[in-house]
């Protein structure tokens, strides 16, 4: 690295990291503007966790699609956060239409319903556009859901593969990140090592819809060919377009 004589060395250092360096001080504390910037980022992340999923808005954003709603066994947000085991099971008495399909898609609130609101419809549309030749089950909207809730949903729908698009844990600078998890032959009890993941779907800062959908569909094809997903697919599957992020 070259330093311009007389230039500001801090500018060089600051440009090399997103860390909050050189914030300045007020006494030993933070200047008010820096304090409020931090609080705003944390507030956005907190709100992303706690804003409930809005099924009506998602229906409106996905016209012409059959959309089923299910809930996990976690009755509310507080229970959901403390009992991940309940978020992996369907609420008692949940009924889904038995059938057969190649792939079922689940939109799950996860830790950021906001991610589903912001990126769910765009992502789903991009994926469906690329699934010619596949039979696709009804779209499922799942609340208080963990990734593994896709297993009983996919099993009930008779899906060969389930895709769960779920809100990821919000970071301080990324409250709206969507993750995609693909599981071959979904059944309750599948291990995380049997899934493949594409994370950080979050245009314009993260992965775009078209790019994510293309990677996902390539993974779906590879899983169908191999009859498996997870570590095996990553290790033995065909070359895939880079998922980025």
């Amino acid at each position: 690295m070259s330093v311009v004589p007389g230039g500001d060395p801090w500018a060089v250092l600051r440009s090399a990291t997103r860390a909050r360096v050189a914030l300045g001080r007020a006494g030993d504390g933070l200047p008010t503007a820096r304090l409020l910037e931090f609080k705003a980022a944390h507030a956005a992340a907190r709100d992303a966790v706690h804003t409930p999923l809005d099924p009506a808005a998602l229906r409106a954003a996905l016209p012409g699609h059959e959309l089923l709603e299910v809930h996990s066994a976690a009755p509310d947000r507080s229970t959901y956060l403390q009992r991940p085991d309940l978020g992996r099971r369907l609420a008692e008495g949940t009924e889904l239409p038995a059938g057969e399909c190649d792939v079922a898609i689940v939109l799950a609130d996860g830790l950021s319903p906001r991610a589903v609101h912001d990126h769910g419809p765009g992502l789903v549309t991009a994926v469906l556009d690329r699934l010619g030749g596949w039979t696709v089950g009804p779209l499922v909207l799942a609340t208080q859901a963990r990734v593994a809730l896709g297993d009983p949903i996919g099993a009930a729908l008779g899906a060969r593969i389930v895709v769960v698009a779920i809100g990821e844990r919000p970071g301080l600078s990324s409250a709206d990140s969507l993750g995609l998890y693909l599981t071959w032959d979904p059944q309750p009890g599948r291990a995380d090592s049997e899934r493949n993941c594409i994370s950080n779907v979050r245009p314009p800062h993260g992965l775009g819809y078209a790019e994510a959908a293309a990677t996902l569909v390539a993974l779906l094809g590879a899983a169908r060919e191999l009859g498996a997903s997870g570590v095996v697919l990553k290790d033995e599957g065909p070359a895939l377009p880079a998922a980025g992020g």
Binding site: R18, R20, L23, R25, D28, L30, R34, F38, G171
Partner: peptide, 25 residues
């Protein structure tokens, strides 16, 4: 302590350098 409480690698919040100064003071 991490810059501005924000760990940009592990994605969690710890103390800031200012927090350490404040506790010492």
């Amino acid at each position: 302590a991490v810059p501005g409480s924000d760990d940009v690698m592990l994605h969690y919040q710890s103390l800031s350098f200012q927090d350490v100064l404040t506790a010492r003071q």
